[in-house]
Nucleic acid binder design. Sequence first.
DNA 1: TATTGTTATACTCTATAACTATA
DNA 2: TATAGTTATAGAGTATAACAATA
Lengths: 151, 151
Amino acid sequence: MRKPRQDSVSDDALRQFVGYHIRRASSVVQSDLASTLKPFELRMLTYSALVLIAKNSGLSQSQLAVAMGIERPNLVMIIDELEQRELVVRERDPSDRRVYALRPTLAGQELCDEAMAANAALEARVLADLDAAARDALIAALSALHSPKPT
Amino acid sequence: MRKPRQDSVSDDALRQFVGYHIRRASSVVQSDLASTLKPFELRMLTYSALVLIAKNSGLSQSQLAVAMGIERPNLVMIIDELEQRELVVRERDPSDRRVYALRPTLAGQELCDEAMAANAALEARVLADLDAAARDALIAALSALHSPKPT
DNA sequence: TATTGTTATACTCTATAACTATA
DNA sequence: TATAGTTATAGAGTATAACAATA
């Protein structure tokens, strides 16, 4: 009995898991957003950092790293890049000269607004088939997932 | 006027985007699954490959790469690893000696079943707060997202 | 010529240890 | 001593170009 060569590949065994759908959706959404941010010469990381700085002017690099869920060392080059492009500034905090207070420049504020508008436009297209209720239900369901870590 | 130091960091500006919630959920789900697979000495990539091979015995490396959404060169070391652990075998296809037909060994089948059972148990815990309808709605909503690429 | 699998390589994202300067 | 930022480094994951064997 000859074992036949596979004609088409089925991912049914993986599609039974919700996590598979979430990871695939995330991958699509992430690559779409990366394309959207490209004209602004922003990557996911520089975009997230710029938005958080613009909306939380004066925060420290440590605080930003926590908010972004990355380690402090990995933030250094991200801030370097934003600073070299004069989108944010590192201000010494006179009351604690170890920390930098991160603040957006005017250009940083403007680029942040433009990039967020593009992000919103992208979302509108991606979510075109979902009404507001379905959109809220999606967010609620995603938030209802709980990590079984503390078990 | 002194600019105040930021006390707490708000991610409201990012949380307005559904993509942000999807990427965060994906990150949580992915790290949970990685922990679950650790006892089997499987990574996300070796797990996906093993399941797809076990459920599509005889497929080629090119076919598998397409199914996994990665480039062919990146699959080589993944299959090397599974082959060295004797979980899958590379069989020469006599009718086309360029291709390898990938097949699971008995041990590969068994490990696949055990890992998938652990994955299912994990999902049950993660989705504990969602009823079947909400679960299906979540998958439907994720599938309804469409990539605006062809635009 | 085109395709399968492979090698070599590079880039991004992530993580850890150790340093400096301040506190 | 502890913390903020930094440097150096290493590990994944991913992408492209080019090669040998085969079609």
